[in-house]
Amino acid sequence: MSAEVEVDQVLVIARDIFSSMIDGEAGFLESWVGEPPVLAEPVVAWVDLRGPWSGRAALRTETPTAHNLSRALLGMSADEEVSDADLADAVGELANVVGGNVKALLPEGGKLGLPEVAAELPLTADAVLMHGVALAWRGRPLVVEIWALPTLDQP
């Protein structure tokens, strides 16, 4: 089975999440203009989807942007230090919500794993990038990816 998720749907999901969870209003998350960004000091958060279709929803950004997202999501002040635990909780929750929305679009559902956060996205050799949506949050680079991971398929 293949994912029935279109790139436009990924963009809508991301915009809805950011307007409701991060910014409180629409307009701060837009499509990236130009070549997809190369991320310095990357942070990636992901959640696996298992079932008739298995894959991974991932959110990539740079560490300073991940700190700003964490502050916004957790209601912290602009100068407040973000701990590793706060960063993992915040960007992990964003990936979790993206994954949950992607799962809702699949005709046969499945199960959502727990969010994980690291500097790199671990992928198997059979991983296939279904969608990579380059975005700009308040001018900062952010990429939402949907991967098909056949090795996660369950009977």
Rank of each mutant, 00 (worst) to 15 (best):
L114F: 11
V10C: 09
V12Q: 14
V97G: 01
A125V: 14
L142T: 14
D48M: 04
T61N: 05
L114R: 11
L94C: 09
H131I: 13
E62S: 12
E4Y: 01
V97L: 14
L106G: 01
R15Q: 15
V128L: 12
D153T: 13
L39M: 06
G132V: 05
L149G: 02
R140C: 09
F28H: 12
A78M: 10
R50N: 06
V128A: 09
V97K: 05
A119C: 00
R15A: 09
V97D: 07
N101E: 12
E80D: 13
L74R: 02
G51H: 00
P52G: 07
P107Y: 00
A136F: 01
L152N: 04
E108V: 07
I17Y: 03
M1W: 03
S2N: 10
L69F: 06
D23Y: 00
E81V: 15
V98K: 03
P107V: 10
E108D: 12
I13L: 14
A127M: 10
G99Y: 02
S83D: 11
L112W: 06
L87D: 06
E25T: 09
D86E: 15
S20A: 13
R15N: 09
I22Y: 08
G110L: 00
E41S: 11
R71Y: 05
P115W: 00
A104C: 05
A3I: 12
A104E: 09
L94Q: 10
E120P: 00
L29Q: 13
G24W: 02
G51C: 03
A118E: 14
A78L: 09
A45R: 12
A58R: 03
V33H: 03
L69Q: 03
P36F: 02
M1Y: 05
N68C: 06
A127E: 11
G34K: 05
A90D: 10
V12I: 13
V128E: 13
G55I: 01
R140E: 15
D84W: 00
D126G: 00
A148L: 13
S70C: 04
L105A: 06
V44G: 01
P107L: 11
G75Q: 14
L106R: 04
L59M: 13
W46P: 09
T61H: 00
S31Y: 01
D8E: 15
L69G: 02
A26R: 14
E62D: 07
A14S: 14
V33G: 00
A26I: 05
A125C: 02
L73E: 03
E80V: 05
R138A: 11
N101W: 08
R50Y: 02
G139Q: 08
I17H: 06
D23V: 08
S31V: 14
V91I: 15
E6R: 13
A58L: 05
A88Q: 12
D89N: 07
L152K: 03
L121I: 12
I13F: 13
V5H: 06
P42G: 03
D84S: 13
W147Q: 06
V7L: 08
P141T: 04
E6W: 08
V144N: 02
A3V: 15
G100C: 09
F18H: 11
T151F: 02
A119K: 10
E30Y: 01
R138Q: 15
V82R: 03
R138V: 13
A58V: 02
G75F: 12
P122V: 11
D86K: 01
P115C: 07
P52Y: 02
P115N: 05
M1D: 12
G92S: 05
G109D: 10
L11C: 04
